[in-house]
Computed example of a mutant assay.
Amino acid sequence: MARANPGRAGAGFSNIDLGAASTAAGGSPALRGYLARPAGDGPFPAVLMIHEAFGLDENTVRHADRLAASGYVTLAVDLYSDGGARRCLVATMRSLAAGAGRAFTDLAAARAWLLESGQTTGKIGVIGFCMGGGFALLIAHDGFDAAAVNYGKIPKDPGVLAGSCPIVANFGGRDRTLPEAADKLAAALDGLGVEHDIQEFAAAGHAFLNEVPVGPRLLRPLYRVMGIGPDPQSAPEAWQRIDDHFARHLKDPPSAGR
């Protein structure tokens, strides 16, 4: 079981100050994150988590706690902590579209902090959801051992994915925001020779791994029409695929005789 999470109190569910590491790298001075640890002394394999467009919220915390319960020290970095979602969303999305900018500096600083924390085995994965899935794709080549991409946008130039670590990806067949994304990503990774396991869940939409709906209540009927929201039927299989992928690439193989 994961340890209790003291970071649930306070703005943005953040409990880790990454500001010094980020500032030293030229990133956000007020960068924060949510850290979830497995029980025990460790060290543990690590996972860097990147939230969806609505920010580091209750769903992000639940995702991080879930991975911690599976044996990974998990750092969910809050890309909006230095100014809030209203101020940071546009700049962060521009950074994603450009493939460069402060958001990438912040993610690199968070990765370095996690590996230098003394809590990890040195194996590290990255997982992202929605906007975060797009970021996870773009940094999968940058020192990670495995990546999990959930309904993330595919870059216009798929060539930037060359040299990526093994990728598992989950998409929703009812997701109108990412039509044919699973097939497009599979074709791109096939052409680049990147190891991958991609699946589209026919009954699921965008953000189907969330446990609770997100966004303004007034817009939620529109989100349902667009195929956005939790799908408790598809989510367990998607999570099992993530668990299997991370276990294969991040956990030490069993010794002979086990």
Rank of each mutant, 00 (worst) to 15 (best):
L89A: 14
D157N: 13
A68R: 01
S164K: 04
R176H: 14
A162K: 15
P158G: 07
L138N: 11
S164T: 08
P158K: 02
A188R: 01
G128I: 09
G71Q: 05
T105N: 11
F144Q: 00
A169C: 10
E195D: 15
K153A: 11
A181R: 02
L192V: 06
A97R: 15
Q119P: 05
V126E: 00
G159Y: 07
S95M: 09
L115Y: 08
K153S: 10
D145T: 11
K153G: 03
F104T: 11
S164P: 05
S81D: 03
L67I: 04
H141E: 07
V126A: 03
S70G: 15
T74K: 05
L192D: 08
A147F: 03
K123P: 00
F104L: 14
A68L: 04
G193S: 05
L138Q: 12
G99N: 09
H196A: 03
A146C: 11
L192M: 11
V168H: 00
A182H: 04
G193M: 01
K156Q: 13
L79K: 02
K123N: 11
D190S: 13
A69M: 14
D175N: 13
L67D: 04
S81M: 02
Y72F: 12
R94M: 13
A188M: 08
E180A: 13
P155C: 07
G172W: 06
A148I: 09
D175P: 08
D145H: 15
V149S: 00
L178A: 01
A76Q: 01
A181Y: 01
N170R: 11
V149T: 06
A169S: 14
